[in-house]
Amino acid sequence: MACQGHCILTSDAHQTDMMYPDISGFGELTCPDHHLAMICQCDMKKDIKVELSPHPHSMRQVVNIIIAVERLKNIKKMSSGKFCEDALLNFFLENVIEEREMKPLNTTPIYHKSDRTLQCTICDKYKKTLVQSNKLTNEDLHLKAVTLSAGSIQYKVKFSMSMYISTTSQNKGRAVCLGISDTNLYIACSKSDGSSPVLFLKEVNGSLNTIEAGDPNEYDSLLFFRKESGTAYSSFESVKYPGWFITTAFEDWKRVEMYQVPTDRTMNFTLEDQQEIKNQI
């Protein structure tokens, strides 16, 4: 073999100037008293030598180097009496360099409004319709679930359900905003002072074309994951508070509220009187 010079491996950016005399045989590990050190040399007929700079190494690294040296003795691919550059590079890639899993940085989800809006009314699976409380009584503004007679259908709330596309992958369904048609009121889920999330109608005057998680105006409280089950039902889970769903009670005239599952309330809804419209974004 006619390979001149040294092949030096080091895991530190600072190369040591210290060189070690050749030794015969497989190799040697030394640890001077004044600091941790590791020297691994392989002398094959004075042609190949592998050296490590004297910096602290783990036992795993020591074992890897010993294995690498043994495999290096068996490399036979030569070019003009020397190692081919590609062969030597492939050797180090396969035997010396360790793989490490790189995890992506946490990114803030951003939701962009699509050009689709679905106008509809919403009923729970017991055929109770969502209505505005102040349309029937003098109570504060909120939603109730009520079984309406044929002569009371004018009290149905018509919703404009806007679809959103997220910059991050989601497995919980399509993000939507539920606004009351011809108003600036939207269903929202929020909490304060460590309390449980509550459902209310939020007045919005700004643009909702783009909603970012952690928005200072809490526009992210308007977002819900709509998940369809079967061919009939949809559920609405808060994007801001995972695990909390829009629910109704079995009885009439009860307030529509946020609940965690499992619960004896229903979180399954049907979308009635559907009409899809195109938005100008």
Rank of each mutant, 00 (worst) to 15 (best):
K202F: 09
E212S: 15
A87C: 05
S80M: 09
K254P: 00
E212M: 14
L201A: 10
D43R: 08
Y241C: 03
K128V: 01
D215G: 05
E99D: 13
D124M: 06
G151H: 12
G179R: 06
G27R: 01
D140L: 05
K158G: 00
C31L: 12
F269S: 04
I165Q: 11
M18H: 12
V256G: 03
T121I: 01
C177D: 00
Q132P: 01
P32K: 06
D33L: 13
Y219I: 04
T137W: 06
V256T: 06
S169Q: 12
A37C: 11
V157A: 07
Y219R: 07
C3V: 10
N209Y: 05
V131G: 06
F159W: 11
S152F: 11
F250N: 10
V146N: 03
Q4C: 12
T16M: 11
H34Q: 07
S152Y: 10
N106W: 00
D47C: 13
Y259I: 01
K127V: 07
T168H: 03
K77N: 12
P32E: 13
K103D: 00
T117R: 13
S195I: 00
P104K: 08
K191G: 01
Y259R: 14
S192G: 00
T270K: 12
S195G: 05
T248I: 03
T30S: 12
L136T: 10
T167Q: 09
D140S: 11
V256H: 04
F225R: 04
S234Q: 11
H57Y: 15
V63W: 08
R174K: 08
R116L: 11
M59K: 09
S196L: 08
L141I: 04
Q41T: 09
P262S: 12
G5F: 10
D47R: 09
K125E: 14
I246C: 03
R71D: 05
I67D: 13
P197G: 02
N74A: 07
P56C: 07
F245R: 06
T266V: 07
A175F: 02
T231I: 06
L185R: 08
N90W: 01
D22T: 03
N268R: 12
A87T: 14
E257R: 09
K113P: 00
H6G: 01
E101V: 14
K135L: 09
V239P: 07
M19K: 13
K46H: 12
L199H: 03
I165A: 07
C123D: 02
I65E: 01
K202T: 00
N95Y: 11
Y155I: 02
L201K: 09
N268F: 15
S114C: 03
M267E: 02
L52G: 03
T247V: 07
E203K: 13
V157H: 01
K76G: 06
I246P: 02
G173T: 04
D17T: 15
Y164E: 08
I75N: 02
S196C: 06
L105E: 13
G230R: 03
D124G: 07
T210D: 03
G179Y: 05
V198E: 10
A249Y: 11
P54E: 13
